[in-house]
Simulated scan of single mutants.
Amino acid sequence: MARVRYFAAAAEATGLEAEHRGERTLGELRSAVSSDHPGLGGILPRCAVLVGGARVDDATPLGTDDLVDVLPPFAGG
């Protein structure tokens, strides 16, 4: 199962810092976490979603050892 880590507003929306997921592709994972965590649905399209530290497309397969990071936009200053 891939490990998904949520940061900042994504962690607030899910109530989790991390969870293990069994979806087979990044697209399936996006859809499933939006369904399982409705509060995440509004911000997920604006989030950077990285697999192994890289931006990839939704067709990317997820392996059991993959690390997925969900990073909302950050304001800086």
Score class of each variant (00 low, 15 high):
residue 46 R to S: 11
residue 39 G to Q: 09
residue 30 R to D: 00
residue 47 C to M: 06
residue 35 S to F: 12
residue 53 G to K: 08
residue 35 S to K: 15
residue 38 P to E: 07
residue 49 V to M: 07
residue 50 L to Q: 07
residue 37 H to Y: 15
residue 49 V to E: 01
residue 48 A to P: 05
residue 59 A to D: 14
residue 55 R to V: 01
residue 51 V to Y: 00
residue 49 V to K: 00
residue 59 A to N: 14
residue 31 S to Y: 07
residue 31 S to C: 07
residue 32 A to M: 05
residue 37 H to A: 00
residue 56 V to T: 13
residue 57 D to I: 00
residue 35 S to M: 07
residue 49 V to Q: 02
residue 43 I to S: 10
residue 55 R to K: 08
residue 51 V to E: 02
residue 32 A to S: 15
residue 36 D to Y: 13
residue 56 V to W: 01
residue 40 L to E: 06
residue 62 L to P: 01
residue 31 S to G: 12
residue 37 H to N: 10
residue 46 R to I: 00
residue 57 D to Y: 05
residue 30 R to M: 02
residue 36 D to I: 03
residue 33 V to S: 03
residue 32 A to K: 06
residue 50 L to I: 05
residue 57 D to P: 01
residue 33 V to M: 11
residue 55 R to M: 02
residue 59 A to L: 06
residue 58 D to W: 05
residue 43 I to C: 10
residue 37 H to E: 06
residue 34 S to K: 10
residue 35 S to R: 15
residue 41 G to P: 08
residue 30 R to W: 00
residue 40 L to H: 09
residue 52 G to V: 01
residue 38 P to C: 04
residue 35 S to V: 09
residue 49 V to Y: 01
residue 41 G to K: 14
residue 44 L to C: 09
residue 46 R to H: 14
residue 43 I to G: 10
residue 37 H to T: 04
residue 33 V to N: 02
residue 32 A to G: 12
residue 32 A to D: 12
residue 42 G to K: 15
residue 37 H to I: 00
residue 41 G to H: 11
residue 61 P to Y: 12
residue 49 V to I: 14
residue 62 L to A: 09
residue 42 G to Q: 13
residue 54 A to R: 15
residue 44 L to Y: 08
residue 53 G to L: 02
residue 37 H to Q: 07
residue 61 P to G: 07
residue 55 R to H: 13
residue 59 A to K: 13
